[in-house]
């Protein structure tokens, strides 16, 4: 169902880059449309590529800080699923993101009006629009970096150095 299995690696690379970028920039990731707080919560699933997928699932309050997660990166695994906490202005969204499909699940939306009528539904759909715009914006930012050797080479080198470095603390 997802568009192009040939490019399924892009999703895993995107989530791995997002982890790297959020750590490098103190939890704030900037795109052409704005700057967002990005944190990884509860569960991080890492998988190796190829046909024989080997996975590691890390459950923790801060899974991105876990030694096990960093060890998985060092043996060549990339992030396949993550639970993200996104700060967008004064709103906070929490959502599971699947690297293979970019599908959003178990999204916790901020309550603004909290109505259970048509206006409340419109509000919740509007919040989904906002959440999608942020996730898509981050992904687009990554793809634009990734698509040319000129923009990608320095990021690749920085990510390799990051993967090779044991986490602080």
């Amino acid at each position: 169902m997802a568009g192009g299995d040939r490019f399924s690696f892009l999703g895993r690379e995107f989530l791995t880059w997002l982890w790297f970028e959020s750590e490098r920039s103190g939890g704030r990731v900037a795109t052409a449309d704005g700057e967002y707080g990005v944190d990884f919560a509860q569960r991080l699933v890492l998988e190796s590529g190829g046909t024989l997928k080997e996975g590691s699932s890390v459950q923790s309050e801060a899974p991105a800080q876990a030694q096990e997660a960093r060890t998985a990166l060092r043996v060549g695994k990339k992030v396949a699923k993550a639970r993200l906490v996104l700060d967008v202005g004064d709103k906070q969204f929490t959502v599971n993101l699947d690297a293979e499909t970019l599908a959003l699940s178990n999204a916790k939306l901020p309550t603004v009006l909290g109505l259970r009528d048509a206006a409340g539904l419109d509000e919740r759909v509007g919040l989904l629009d906002q959440l999608e715009a942020v996730v898509d914006g981050l992904y687009l930012h990554f793809v634009r970096l990734r698509k040319t050797e000129q923009s990608w080479a320095p990021v690749r080198e920085a990510m390799r150095a990051w993967v090779a470095t044991p986490p602080q603390g």
Partner: peptide
């Protein structure tokens, strides 16, 4: 999905086509 979202968010077809040159990192 991963590719279909790109034009929806304003990426030009030329840019999307250039992805065919890249492989997994």
């Amino acid at each position: 999905g991963l590719l279909e979202v790109l034009p929806l968010r304003g990426m030009a077809q030329e840019e999307i086509d250039s992805l065919s040159l890249i492989d997994a990192e």
